[in-house]
Design a protein around this nucleic acid. Sequence first.
DNA 1: TCAATTTTTGAATTTGTGTTCACTTTTTTA
DNA 2: TAAAAAAGTGAACACAAATTCAAAAATTGA
Lengths: 205, 205
Amino acid sequence: MVYRRSPLMEERLANNRDRILLATRKLVAEGGFREAQIAAVAALAGMSTGMIYRYFPSKAELFVEVLGDAVGAEIELLSEIAGGPGSATERLSHALTCFVRRALRGPNLAYAFVFEPVDPEVDTARIRYRKKFGDVFKAILVDGIERGEFPDQDAGASAACIVGAFTEALVGPIGPTTRNIHDKERLVESIRSFCLRAVGGAFTQ
Amino acid sequence: MVYRRSPLMEERLANNRDRILLATRKLVAEGGFREAQIAAVAALAGMSTGMIYRYFPSKAELFVEVLGDAVGAEIELLSEIAGGPGSATERLSHALTCFVRRALRGPNLAYAFVFEPVDPEVDTARIRYRKKFGDVFKAILVDGIERGEFPDQDAGASAACIVGAFTEALVGPIGPTTRNIHDKERLVESIRSFCLRAVGGAFTQ
DNA sequence: TCAATTTTTGAATTTGTGTTCACTTTTTTA
DNA sequence: TAAAAAAGTGAACACAAATTCAAAAATTGA
């Protein structure tokens, strides 16, 4: 045996993997999964197509990882808010504005991640992640109902409605016309107040 | 010239066209656009693939027509409710329950029509139709705000939220488990009450 | 029935992409 | 430096699905 992977090489390999993930994320953010073809990913990452397959067994698994990374980060943020201090109303309000503001920075990414189906394998993962978003909101709702902040309701259905409401309101106005900061904040506020009224919480702040 | 299309032939041609549309709609309802391949459509309609292209210039245009027909019917129903008698709250309530009940009968169709992207051409049409749904609800909201039934709000954003809320709540729980009629009615009621609270209307009926 | 014309067929072609693999280059250690 | 092994390449291949088109079947009017 005359070859053993050196630490330097090890690092380069990890680097390559990251570059693939980064390139994919970038392409998806710009034009959805549709635009993230293996050839395009390879080109953007500055490597050959064959290279991709040293790191990922298939395009679907690459997509699932990119999706998971992005969604995971969002979920983590939201969970922190959901499990944090404050009334259920406050936490719901905070979680909503936080997510919507972030999504407005990269509308296509949000679209691709939350909506765009690709192939069955990725679709399955996407639905799982969507459900996770719902679970975060459901937890807040259940808590709020227990505390008497919100009227009794099907927390699961309401959570799904919330996820649907803000994604649709976000994705609908997608377009080349990047709206200015005022419009964005107005949209954030519209979505927030809609959802807060919807769950029946006292309309504060 | 010894051949002129007879009335009988004329009818057969129109019949063929209808059979293609029907077969496509059926396949889409069962498995989404993904399952509605030209070969499958042709097989179900009992004709050859080449035949399809005598009636439709491309698969995309066939899809757009199927989509338009189905959505058009729904829009017409909703518009009638929206423009009918009653308070804005009543009409919104009625429109919601009507649409959600209908969609629950064919969840896959609803999914394909409202969500599933296919190719850019169909996608464009789909977004247009989605917007139309929103417009119906927006009209009710604008009216309700004018009458003082609903608090002041961005009717466009709220309408988008409503469309998002019920589609997500509908599509989210899609699965092979056909839910029974009780669950369905409970879901209808959950969505209805969520949206009514959301627009701030007095919670009646 | 027959010739002109249209309708219908479905195998072949085209197209767009994901994936592979024989080959080249680079890295490692002796 | 040289041999062994791995990393890296990208043209070729595979595959699925839309589309075409030459030939076959059906229809029409004389």
